[in-house]
Design a protein around this nucleic acid. Sequence first.
DNA 1: GCCAGTAGTTCACCGCCGCGAAACATCGCT
DNA 2: AGCGATGTTTCGCGGCGGTGAACTACTGGC
Lengths: 167, 167
Amino acid sequence: MLRWPEEESRRARISEAGEPRLLLVPDGEEPPPVGDCLEDWIRVPAAENEVKARVDALAVRSQAHPTNGHNGHAPSAPVIDDFGVLRVNGSWVALPPLEARLAEALLERLGAVTSRDLLIRAGWPTGAPGRNALDVHVLRLRRRLSPVGLAIRTVRSRGYLMEPAPA
Amino acid sequence: MLRWPEEESRRARISEAGEPRLLLVPDGEEPPPVGDCLEDWIRVPAAENEVKARVDALAVRSQAHPTNGHNGHAPSAPVIDDFGVLRVNGSWVALPPLEARLAEALLERLGAVTSRDLLIRAGWPTGAPGRNALDVHVLRLRRRLSPVGLAIRTVRSRGYLMEPAPA
DNA sequence: GCCAGTAGTTCACCGCCGCGAAACATCGCT
DNA sequence: AGCGATGTTTCGCGGCGGTGAACTACTGGC
């Protein structure tokens, strides 16, 4: 159980270890992006039974979860920190700021399509560059991510979709 | 998204189908027991971004989840999203806009006949092209869908019928 | 059963344009 | 200067949607 966002690095460590965690989010903070069955969050202060309910749920999941493994490593949900370091499955890559913003947007919708428009807004909050810049940076991001087992698929005329690279 | 505890039976059905669900729990009700990665709950009334955060998390989990083997879910019903991505049984295909519209129409009547006329209206809301276009696109759709286990059967002089491909 | 008409399938081809990719140009930092 | 991050230009492939035509399969009339 840890505080968000102060203890982000601790969260990353626990996540790496494949342990469940409950993020305590104070009023006024944005809820964290969760893409992991072993993670949950709750507004604090909160009633005791609510906290208990979420902790119990996490416990059950962590028990029943196939990703808790003796047979090799479970795919852990990718996480990107404020320094642009993306961790997944025990390995990591450092991303330059622009690509980090793009990766973040894609990660929030892991497994679903992220529109070009949204990516452009995420990458360039203050005015878009040339119309081809996004393509180029997606290409670069692809190359940077492939070593850590993440793939970006394009959905033509729709956007891009990030997913764990096929085995 | 459903109300708890009123819609308990609906929750059970969705759970059966292996689809994600978010339980809306009014103040004063006990939080439900959750032991399932595809389920979450939240106190209502709640801020919009909190609901969104939880829905997003569920969406990510439901995608990233390796179609749980331990409790043997039935094959999930095919769904097509706003980006033309059709998901079924853990795999997915991206469909071009036209075929996405056709697939959507067929999907709405999965297992029943969809008339040519209706398909034409679905595919070409603003005026139909040549009389052969539909056939060609059904062919293309067929080829695109077969890898994910969906088949389109023709019912002569009536229309087409989509169904899960026979094993 | 035979035949002709009709419905449906498949292929080849075309024009358009989105995207991939390399090559090059800039800029800022060390 | 050297390097890495970011932008831009340019070229080309391949996807998408449309068309005509050849081919096949089914149907109803005889």
